[in-house]
Structures are given as C-alpha cells and as structure tokens.
C-alpha cells in the first residue's frame, strides 16, 4: 500500500516537474524528457497497459505545443511504453544502472522514431539531431530520472494490469 502511494507520488512528481519546470531544467540546449521516464517506470511496473496508457496521456500533453505534428509524441510514447511493458520480465532489475540503461535506450529509440517521422519530408538534419540533441538529452534524462527515483528509495514491484 505504501509502495503504491510512493510510486504514485513519484509519478506525479515527474509529471509536474516536467510540466511546470521544463524550461528551468535545461542545461544549455539540452532538455530532459521526464515524461519518458514516467512512461518507462509505468511500463516496468504496470506492463504494456500501464506503459501504453501513460504514453498516450504524456504524449498528448506534449503534443499540445506542436500543432504541426499533434499526436506524434503520443504515437511514439505508446509504442515505447508497450514495448518496455512486453519485455520487462526479461531484463528488469531494481539495480539503478539497469534502470538508467533502460531509460537511456528508450530515449534513443524514442527520438529515432520521433525524428524519422518528423524529418520524413526529406530533411537532411536527422543524424545531426540524433547526435547533437538526442545523445546528450538521453544521458541527462537517465541521470535525472534515476536520481529522482533514488530520492524516493522504493522498489518497483512488477505488477500485471
């Protein structure tokens, strides 16, 4: 029961930090994606359903700032959430390094899918974006995400929804 409350509080913290302090979290031009961290932890704990639903909600909220591609964040985050939820049993561990690796990999896959659709109209700056934007952002996201997780100090018990 306490773990559930802690986990919910952790998710809400991620949600509101990203929603309200996104501009303040920037390190130069590198921004973290705490919504993705939220989706990853939801998927690890709640499985494909938790991952998909959290991915949809977070994605749509992020998309409300981008009218050109409204729905794109949602599509990518649903896919990432579902995929992590599906394969979580094969790699999940409460070790922070494992969680950091999962977040890092998710962010890289997230951005590869996102920008390959975003730049699908024949734009050449895809790889520049991945190297100069995604790579630092992925490291920053995983460090910040795991640091926040450590602050709450609880174990992510796997549940099946």
């Amino acid at each position: 029961m306490i773990t559930n409350l802690k986990f919910t509080f952790f998710l809400l913290t991620l949600f509101f930090i990203h929603l309200l302090f996104y501009q303040y979290l920037a390190l130069g031009e590198v921004y973290p994606d705490l919504f993705l961290v939220l989706v990853v932890y939801c998927a690890l704990r709640g499985g494909p359903v938790g991952g998909s639903i959290s991915g949809f909600i977070c994605g749509i909220i992020q998309d409300s700032f981008s009218y050109t591609y409204f729905g794109l964040h949602a599509v990518v985050k649903i896919v990432i959430g579902f995929a992590i939820g599906k394969v979580r049993h094969s790699f999940f561990s409460n070790k922070y390094i494992v969680q950091a690796t999962i977040i890092l990999t998710s962010k890289i896959f997230h951005d590869i899918i996102f920008y390959s659709i975003y730049f699908s109209r024949g734009e050449e700056s895809f790889w520049r974006q991945i190297i100069f934007h995604t790579a630092p952002s992925a490291f920053y996201t995983c460090i910040l995400g795991v640091a926040l997780f450590i602050m709450f100090r609880f174990k992510v018990a796997i549940k099946s929804w």
Binding site: G71, A74, I78
Partner: peptide, 19 residues
C-alpha cells in the same frame, strides 16, 4: 486486453495526427 488497449490508443493517436 493488453494488445487491444495498445492498438486502440495507437489508432486514436494516429487519427489525431491525421486530422
């Protein structure tokens, strides 16, 4: 249910994207 929820949400997002 897992796959159905995933597909439903994905379809909604794609529908929104193609509005």
């Amino acid at each position: 249910r897992q796959s159905l929820i995933f597909l439903l949400l994905l379809l909604i997002s794609l529908a929104v994207l193609s509005l």
